[in-house]
Write a protein that binds this DNA or RNA. Structure first.
Lengths: 216, 216
DNA sequence: GTCTATACATGGATAGAC
DNA sequence: GTCTATCCATGTATAGAC
């Protein structure tokens, strides 16, 4: 029985922040009760007292970090009204993530999932927060465009989220390469944005070809 | 001075294979000289004799594994002549990767890069093998399409490769979600493929809009 | 609730026998 | 080249003092 005193919550918060910092700065391989406790500035034994095990602390940190990150971007995402806007917001998030690292955190946790049993579901849940938000945006943005009937917002949201995680991980070993990748995706976004403004004749042609291609 | 005897090369090969298996099955967090040596069926001390340190073994395994994987798909990639073909080959690679795991291996190594100094460059090199191959395909496929003048094959190849790594990692925690993501990307590929077959008038319209959107 | 001390396991790395 | 033995650092987890 652990009463939820003010101090208890404070220590838990310190540990969660410490876990996030350790994971993003040191990676899953160097994340341990000791390193996290050191980053949090508390005693190593408190990890086990408050969370039972390192894995459960990491799972909690995942939920906590993902919720915090998504909440920070939620208003911006809600304001997006076109695909090119979404792409450029993605670029902006990427820039900020270079400091915060909440996305590559998910990458670290995905990498740890095979051995740390508790991590898989927690990471999936954290990713789902991003996915749900992006899916809303995509659904809104795609509505009324010629390819709304072919695009699957749910699947696309998952593709976008997973891709973003991959790119953030990639940036850790090749900053220039990751920049070039995002540039290219922005161009791709511009292409789709251009399609949104196509005339009715061309749109009908696109629709026709899509229907043919869509039959599998 | 280490003579390159037949036995030496055999042991090295065993260790490389063991490292690949351990990384894909156990993840970077549980990869150590002992676990790798156990998977390879050789003595733990041989890791240090042949490779100097665990990190250098992993770096070598990365080069070795990426080269092997890319070589296996090279003929298939060379035969691709359209974007939708590329997408469906991507799906096929994904299916095989579920067994082999050579792509999520790169994810594991990316996750380990922050702390293991030797891993960053090695992983970047491994990814570059994929990137180079995909870039060639993209360059060939995009040539002669209306958006060849806007698309950047080098950047796109990086985006595709990093995204693929992200999706393979994502699959480890959500198989259905990863499937939905790939389905959605295939639909997107069908969209672009449809554009390839547009008539000259519509293509001119697309080009016009792209030029406007491309000015930043 | 928190800390110190401690147990026990795992991992990196080397020395020396074969 | 390979193995056994060994050292030392790091990590998980618990017991018990404060």
């Amino acid at each position: 029985m652990r009463p939820e005193t003010a101090k208890s919550r404070e220590t838990k918060a310190k540990l969660l922040e410490g876990a996030l910092r350790t994971l993003t700065e040191q990676g899953i391989a160097k994340t341990s009760a000791r390193t996290v406790a050191a980053a949090a500035g508390v005693n190593q034994a408190l990890v086990f007292y408050h969370f039972g095990s390192v894995d459960e602390l990491l799972a909690a940190a995942c939920r906590y970090g993902a919720e915090k990150a998504v909440a920070a971007y939620r208003p911006r995402l809600a304001a997006v009204s076109s695909l090119s806007e979404l792409l450029s917001l993605g670029r902006e998030i990427h820039e900020r993530e270079r400091a915060g690292g909440h996305v590559s955190l998910l990458g670290q946790l995905l990498a740890g999932a095979p051995t740390h049993a508790a991590l898989g579901p927690a990471t999936a849940a954290g990713l789902d927060l991003w996915i749900a938000e992006i899916e809303k945006v995509l659904r809104r943005v795609l509505e009324g465009t010629p390819f709304a009937e072919f695009a699957d917002p749910a699947g696309l949201a998952r593709a976008v989220s997973a891709s973003f995680v991959g790119i953030e991980l990639y940036e850790q070993v090749d900053v220039a390469g990751a920049g070039a990748a995002l540039d290219a995706l922005e161009q791709l976004g511009a292409l789709v944005a251009a399609l949104e403004e196509l005339g009715p004749v061309a749109q009908r042609a696109v629709r026709h070809h899509l229907r043919r291609a869509g039959r599998r």
